[in-house]
Write a protein that binds this DNA or RNA. Sequence first.
DNA 1: TTGAAAGCGCTAACAG
DNA 2: CTGTTAGCGCTTTCAA
Lengths: 340, 340
Amino acid sequence: MKALSQTMQGRLPTIYDVARLSEVSISTVSRVLNTPHLVREKTRNAVLSAIDELNFTPKADASARARKDFERIGVLTPYFTAPSFVQRLGGIAAALDKTKYELIIYSVESLDQLEGYLSMLPVSRRLDGLIIISLPIDDAFSLRLQQYNLETVFIEYSKPGFSSIEIENERGGILAAQFLVQKGYRSFAFLGDAGEQIYSVHPSDQRLNGYRKGLSEAGFNLPDEYICLMPYSRERVVDQAGTLLDLPKRPEAIFAASDLQAIGILKAARMRNLRVPDDVAVIGFDDLDISDFMELTTIDQELNESGRLAAELLLDRIAERKRPHQNIRLPLSIVERSTA
Amino acid sequence: MKALSQTMQGRLPTIYDVARLSEVSISTVSRVLNTPHLVREKTRNAVLSAIDELNFTPKADASARARKDFERIGVLTPYFTAPSFVQRLGGIAAALDKTKYELIIYSVESLDQLEGYLSMLPVSRRLDGLIIISLPIDDAFSLRLQQYNLETVFIEYSKPGFSSIEIENERGGILAAQFLVQKGYRSFAFLGDAGEQIYSVHPSDQRLNGYRKGLSEAGFNLPDEYICLMPYSRERVVDQAGTLLDLPKRPEAIFAASDLQAIGILKAARMRNLRVPDDVAVIGFDDLDISDFMELTTIDQELNESGRLAAELLLDRIAERKRPHQNIRLPLSIVERSTA
DNA sequence: TTGAAAGCGCTAACAG
DNA sequence: CTGTTAGCGCTTTCAA
């Protein structure tokens, strides 16, 4: 026993281990497992007790079972630790919680890595389902997913033939504009993403379009100097927000394409001793958990719910392949707090 | 193509078929499946299209058999979406990133669930290693982990016979006290956890002890009315923080056991139109990503690094079982920003 | 970046 | 009845 645990070094026991312990050949062990009636009782019992002692399970069993059902759901996501992604993951984890499925996270940090995953995940096929967050997938890859029958749900993206959870980004921009106008602000700015990250979805532009549209419907326009598009990076948010605040004619209200950017504006405002919302009003987009703490007025896009729904859709389809695909649009709503 | 389908005559395709069709060796096919980044793009594409053409899927049991390990690292964690845990996870994910290991997250939300995982994980044994975050494990379970040879590293907890990453919580409290005293504040309060969550680690008490010790060494004391212990819940943080601020003699400085609680105090202060740090100074503990945005003065406990180190320790031991266990104490440091 | 070759854990044909 | 041995399809050194 002691000797054995040393030779096994943390591996699972194999029939070789059982054979050694019971002093027979591996064939005999195999026979005990498969055709026990062909083995003399005495030998068989010796083998069986060795099996017990080692807590042996034929690896093939596990694998054979696994062929029907891996009990694994994968999530392919960029910016794995950014708050908005975490909240979606939280929703997914919650939906998977009481099920048999494990949650595997594939964190994507480059286009290469994304393509690597998309090449191998469907083929190696050790997943029952896949959730892809905020990642645009080209046809070649989505075809693969279908060909290999890997059930997939998209969040913040969609593709014919797949279920998806999305929001109406343009509508969000319109909502922001309407809200700010109705609150009485008269000049408007926008802080959004420059969107140079080619491999991930960037809804900032659509939000900007909606914002512009909403403003113009109300008779306002959005001058180019009041539009600040920046690469997504925490450090520079505050600086960039500053440029908007330091404009000769400071805008009365700023719509940020994300809460993190809105919070950056708040910080920049504080550094300049500007009062929010009196000197400058700020509205964000996301409604992160922290936004409540910040008293940030924002647009709730139900991040948690998006994850939970995606997982539920996935599980439903896995359980019953004939269930139709669904393309869900989550509602957006203004959460009025104290920054606008 | 026709020739091929004849040679295959009704069998399922294997990597040999793929190799023949794409005119490479089986090793290369295997690499495309498992480590695509190690294969030249042109070769990879050739193999992939052969795979598609044959509709090849690797046999799970054959792979499982040939694979010497599971290529899976599990993380057992409570509060999976709380910022401090996310940051640790981020560190772990970063350390695992260029390796072959997948990251499986087991989110723990009750004592029952924890015990379930601790019973199953070592036995079903489909992990190469396990990282346990902020969860106290009793002897029966830790014995199980060792018995089944599941390599494990603890974060924010330790156990003889295991590697661990910890910080000196009491020292953190002392640091906070020294810092506040040296900044000239004269009356002090504490906001921490009531610690009723029996299944997870609660370092708040030790931080309080250190705080008390540091204050008393400087000749100050910490009256009971100035100690507010509350159940960990986002909603109530602000209310509870409020009670401290509404005290007849408001404390000049408050040390919060976590940044989230500190931010709660900030919000409560803002609601009362109190200036920070002039009317009340606030220092937190953690140094979350958002704390920088909040300009929160706090104690950095290197959350990212804790995750990264844990993963590295684990990988080292997995690669070489004889490597000694390590019990690492991460340094703490004051990050002075504008709230104290 | 690739290929040759030696396993992985197990089954099954064959010999004794 | 039992042991030897040759695969199964795949992964993984090791060299080239």
